[in-house]
């Protein structure tokens, strides 16, 4: 081909809800432009066609929850030059990592009539626990503009601008009035990574941490303050234990208040 070779993109799914890869299809205005710049080589949600690897970029959605997946991720890694994990499942184990706080056998028994058929690992773990990850895109779900930013940055060879600072930074820039200070609503914004555009506070709601812990999060100080706002210990545990429950600092903070 006379033209410059288009980079090949693959999208892989592990335990997840599909929402993060759907974000790519939700880029309605940009999808065809992306397809123009990149060969979508392996994206089962969108196409039957599969072009063989190796792939220049792999987007990996979902967490590792089965022995089979724990092996499959290594194959994905081998086939990928750059591996980008997308979403809370891939970066922190996701909502299904709530099992990590209990005995998974009990869980199987609750959900399935014939537990003996279930093959599952005890823990739901992020991709980076298994293979080297070049880049992480946070969120439950990811922000599609951040996804486009990663793709744009990749195309030109720059570092994507994905700030690891707090949601508060976005919230204040947006001009939202702080829900915690002005309404006494507990908010994870000060310890959560930006990227969503401070959505929840924009809707008068406290951040629930779907982008996971920010850089150097001080969860303990926030938890102490929440106690002053009459948040019970049980609620504090639940507060830190949702879509990024297994992310280190959130996990520790939730355990600190667990009885």
């Amino acid at each position: 081909m006379a033209r410059e070779r288009k980079p090949k993109l693959a999208v892989w799914k592990f335990a997840s809800c599909d929402g993060c890869q759907l974000s790519l299809l939700d880029c309605e205005d940009e999808l065809l432009a992306v397809a123009d710049k990149i060969t979508i080589a392996n994206f089962p949600e969108a196409s039957r066609a599969v072009i063989k690897g190796p792939y220049d970029v792999s987007l990996v959605e979902g967490s590792i929850t089965t022995p089979h997946d724990a092996e499959r991720i290594h194959k994905v890694r081998r086939a990928s030059k750059v591996l980008v994990t997308i979403g809370a499942c891939a970066t922190a184990g996701g909502i299904q990592a709530l099992r990590n706080f209990s005995d998974v056998k009990d869980f199987v028994a609750i959900v399935y009539p014939s537990p003996e058929y279930i093959v599952t690992l005890n823990k739901s773990t992020p991709i980076s626990d298994h293979v080297f990850v070049d880049y992480e895109l946070r969120g439950c779900p990811i922000n599609k503009y951040q996804l486009l930013e990663v793709v744009s940055a990749f195309l030109i060879g720059r570092k994507p601008i994905i700030p690891p600072y707090s949601v508060c930074m976005e919230c204040k820039r947006k001009g939202n009035i702080c829900v915690m200070v002005a309404h006494g609503t507990p908010c994870l914004g000060p310890v959560t990574q930006a990227g969503c555009g401070a959505l929840c506070p924009s809707y008068n709601r406290g951040c629930y941490g779907c982008f996971g812990p920010k850089e150097t999060p001080n969860t303990n100080s926030l938890a102490e303050w929440c106690k002053k706002l009459n948040v019970s210990r049980d609620d504090l545990t639940r507060f830190f234990r949702n879509f990024n429950a297994y992310a280190d600092s959130f996990r520790k903070e939730s355990e600190a208040h667990e009885r």
């Binding site: 335990a15 929850t65 997946d69 709530l98 998974v104 199987v108 609750i110 959900v111």
Partner: peptide, 12 residues
């Protein structure tokens, strides 16, 4: 072959 995710269990 979607891996099980146990929603009903951890909703408790």
């Amino acid at each position: 072959f979607e891996p099980p995710r146990f929603f009903e269990a951890f909703l408790r």
